[in-house]
Design a protein around this nucleic acid. Structure first.
Lengths: 253, 253
DNA sequence: TGTACATCAGTGAACGCGCGTTCACTGATGTAC
DNA sequence: TGTACATCAGTGAACGCGCGTTCACTGATGTAC
């Protein structure tokens, strides 16, 4: 019972599902209040995250700011870790959403890939603590439950889809000038990726995408975590340029 | 007085300098004991870091494990943050050292660049918490003092030197087939980098190096922070392959 | 439409814990004469 | 070489604080008849 409730809370669709348990009737006042307070708690916790970091997220502080007893928060989240999980899932979904929206644009693969990367960076810059929560140092002592896996995949699948579209349109050059021998282990890694992502691209292209992908997140992390602050002043221009290079590399240039 | 002492503690060469204050006489027993305990505290703190994360690093816990009163630690580090700073500087110096050692090897630029990257990854895998401390999420509420800047630069300078050597040996192709227009802001960023690093490479090459560099750290972070765990099994093979690609890109391939 | 009962949100006190930092102190080590 | 003084390491108690979680409870909301 308790476990089932907890699991429901963690799922993103929770609010909507709780509002209409039968699938037809209007949500009761109680259900609406619950959904609202759940969101308020998450929003407040997210703000605290920005100031204190994930390790400093405190249920008591959240409760204090919301003007309720600390024990009341337990009606909404069965533990601090489960609140963290909810925030992680929300962050993955948020970045996944902006990436998917950017991926649906028109234009060449290079242009669309760049748009996806720019959208991810824009989100990261606007929500640095959420970015750090999911792409920075894992919270010590916290093990991500399975529930986070599929929201986490969205952003990568959006990029892979852009490349798959580009390949179908003949924009990806597979004839490499200076081919690098791909190790057996890496080939089977790519085979697994093809299955998991349901996307049919040759090893060579997948590895180029992964290179571009690590460039995207490596550059964003460098920016947000302060490793470029003596070098770069206009981060957006720098990022756009570097992502353009990476995208050309994916195309085979 | 207190401030000067604190600053001395933070510098890496602190131990050696304290041992021989006049530059000639043998270190006193007290100085030796102090140097040893300073290292013991750092080593113990580093172990705690691995288990609890930077935010959970506790002076009391360290003192407890070392069998001393918590107040005694204050004879060695004036505050928790200064202990953290010492750990950060040590981590930067450690990764800088292995990178520099790998950079002195013989061979082509691609080979040497790959060696540097492999050395960094090997260090990161062996000391994941130290890697996270300096390349992961910044510790909230902690501002890195200036003392960390020059140890932090070592690892990047090693890589840049390898590329500069390669360029001098004619291994870097500057005639780009499909040149990307470099924004003005980025050009002046690269000019600043040339001055700061005292390395004379054209914008085009510097940007390729930065792309490879973000790939290196992006891939390591993805590995250590768990973003490849559904895709890659043989991380070392994958990393070597991807770094090879990045190095070829630097060479102009 | 009205009543009886079940469900749920929220309270406030309590448990047991750990933290960083300060302070007055004791006793050992180092130094100048 | 021996003594008097200064420096320093380390102690233990204390201050004031915050944390996650549990529990028995009150009162409001929802539901079945």
């Amino acid at each position: 019972m308790r476990e089932a409730e907890a699991r429901a809370v963690l799922t993103n669709g929770y609010t909507a599902r709780m509002e209409q348990p039968t699938g037809s009737a209007a949500p009761t006042a109680r259900a609406r209040a619950r959904a609202e307070l759940t969101e308020e708690i998450k929003a407040c916790a997210s703000r605290h995250l920005a100031e204190q970091g994930a390790a400093g997220l405190s249920l008591r502080a959240v409760a204090r700011e919301l003007g309720m007893a600390s024990s009341a928060v337990y009606r909404y989240f069965p533990s601090r870790d489960e609140l963290l999980t909810a925030l992680i899932i929300d962050a993955y979904d948020a970045v996944g959403e902006v990436a998917e929206a950017a991926a649906t644009g028109k234009g060449t693969m290079v242009k669309r890939f760049t748009a996806v990367a720019m959208a991810i960076r824009a989100w990261a810059v606007a929500h640095p603590h959420d970015y750090a929560l999911v792409y920075g140092t894992p919270v010590p002592g916290y093990a991500a439950p399975r529930d986070t896996a599929s929201p986490a995949a969205r952003v990568s699948l959006a990029a892979l889809q852009v490349v798959a579209d580009g390949a179908a349109a003949g924009e990806v050059d597979v004839s490499v000038r200076r081919p690098m021998p791909i190790p057996k282990a890496t080939r089977s890694d790519m085979a697994r990726l093809r299955v998991a992502a349901s996307i049919d691209l040759p090893d060579e292209v997948l590895l180029r995408v992964l290179l571009a992908w690590t460039t995207v997140f490596g550059t964003i992390s460098f920016e947000l975590f302060g490793h470029l602050h003596t070098v770069v002043e206009d981060y957006e221009a720098f990022f756009r340029h570097q992502v353009g290079r990476a995208a050309l590399h994916v195309a085979g240039g």
